[in-house]
């Protein structure tokens, strides 16, 4: 069992220190990584941990409205919520990631939430290979520009431009889902060379129609190219240099 807890320098890290000072026992599987702010926790880091086989990742920060860096904790929450909703559709148990608010004076809470998290991970069991593979794909998605751009622009859209947050959330989730599918398509193409939408559908287990739509989009972005019709189907291959 491996559990990673990101702690911010101002609230949850001293909160964890306080748990020590008060000698509050919590599971020894917990490994703490200090960052200055929970807002520093890039989803890539969380996903990197999961693909390394870590069973649970908890991000902890200051209570809402009390972030030392004004709104870093809210950015962290937005990201973790997105990740959980992506996990739900990607075969990763969303309960493997969570976010908690722990102030510097809440040593007891630190011990409580780590105990509870350990129990939750015990219930859902160790991370399996399928989840690790999925985390690998989502990691690559969150290392690429498109998903990050849509995620990064959400603050401006919602707070400055007054865009409906629910609508934006939909766009964001759809974008990430598409990117996950495209990443899986790329992997198949890398393995096999040229494939049609139907052939990809068989390997990936998603509807051919949806795959074809994404193939067109990928072609437009010059990630792949079509190599013409073979056996009645349009086949695609990876663009050189991608």
């Amino acid at each position: 069992m491996k559990i990673l807890v990101f702690c911010c320098d101002w609230c949850s890290y001293p909160g964890a220190d306080l748990a020590g000072i008060l000698r509050l026992e919590y599971p020894s599987e917990v490994r703490i990584i200090k960052v200055m702010c929970s807002g520093r926790v890039d989803l890539m880091l969380v996903l990197d941990a999961l693909r390394q086989g870590i069973d649970g990742v908890m991000v902890t920060g200051c209570h809402p409205g009390e972030c030392h860096y004004v709104h870093g904790n809210m950015e962290a929450e937005r990201r973790i919520e997105l990740l959980r909703s992506i996990f739900e559709r990607s075969g990763i148990n969303p309960r493997r990631v969570r976010i908690e608010w722990i102030s510097a004076s809440e040593g007891e809470k630190f011990a409580e939430v780590t105990r509870a998290f350990k129990q939750e991970i015990d219930e859902i069991g160790p991370i399996n290979q399928g989840e690790i593979d999925a985390a690998e794909i989502i990691h690559d998605v969150f290392s690429s520009e498109r998903a990050r751009l849509v995620l990064g622009a959400s603050r401006r859209a919602i707070e400055l431009e007054g865009v409906d947050p629910l609508w934006y959330k939909g766009v964001l989730e759809r974008t990430v889902r598409e990117e996950v599918l495209r990443e899986r398509i790329l992997r198949e193409l890398r393995k096999t060379g040229a494939l049609s939408a139907h052939e990809l559908a068989e390997r990936i287990g998603e509807p051919a129609k949806e795959i074809f739509w994404n193939l067109i989009a990928m072609k437009r972005r010059q990630i792949i190219l079509d190599i013409g019709i073979v056996d009645d189907s349009l086949k695609f291959a990876i663009q050189e240099g991608v």
Partner: peptide, 23 residues
């Protein structure tokens, strides 16, 4: 800059790092 790293966690191009807390 106060070194919180929110920018690094959000940068679409992965162009930002925080000294002493790099990715």
């Amino acid at each position: 800059c106060k070194g919180c790293g929110i920018c690094a966690g959000e940068c679409p191009a992965l162009a930002i790092n925080v000294k002493h807390f790099t990715d």
